[in-house]
């Protein structure tokens, strides 16, 4: 029984890894999950990516442009941030990169741009 549970847990963790494995130009990108909401660079304690999650405001504040993915545009609205696309087995995902080397996925950025979600950010 215990063995079965262990196997199930192992499989679950493996499937999770599979889904969250991202690469950037051949380099595996180490990621942590920030709750269920964002993928953020590993060991990001007081990094710029986390600061961005705390400070980001909705896109409507920057004016809506017709072109491009909303998350990418939100990232581009951050001073000094850089937008890049990472690859995974299943597809591509946009990430927002910061000058200290930290990064966060644009969907997470979109999520935390909503003021009501700010309280879910870990300190």
């Amino acid at each position: 029984m215990l063995k079965n549970i262990f196997t199930i847990l192992l499989l679950l963790s493996l499937s999770n890894l599979y889904a969250e494995d991202y690469f950037f130009k051949g380099v595996r990108v180490p990621l942590d999950k920030h709750g269920d909401y964002a993928l953020i660079s590993k060991e990001c304690v007081n990094c710029m990516a986390k600061r961005a999650l705390k400070e980001i405001t909705p896109m409507e504040n920057y004016g809506i442009m017709a072109i491009g993915a909303p998350g990418a545009k939100l990232c581009m609205s951050i001073e000094g941030a850089k937008y890049e696309i990472f690859d995974s087995k299943l597809g591509q995902q946009g990430f927002c990169l910061f000058s200290d080397g930290s990064y966060v996925d644009t969907d997470g950025l979109m999520y935390f741009s909503d003021p009501s979600n700010k309280k879910k950010i870990d300190n």
């Binding site: 909303p70 995974s88 969907d107 997470g108 979109m110």
Partner: peptide
């Protein structure tokens, strides 16, 4: 869509 594999919050 082409807004990324994680795009639900958009």
């Amino acid at each position: 869509n082409s807004w990324g594999v994680r795009a639900c919050n958009q």
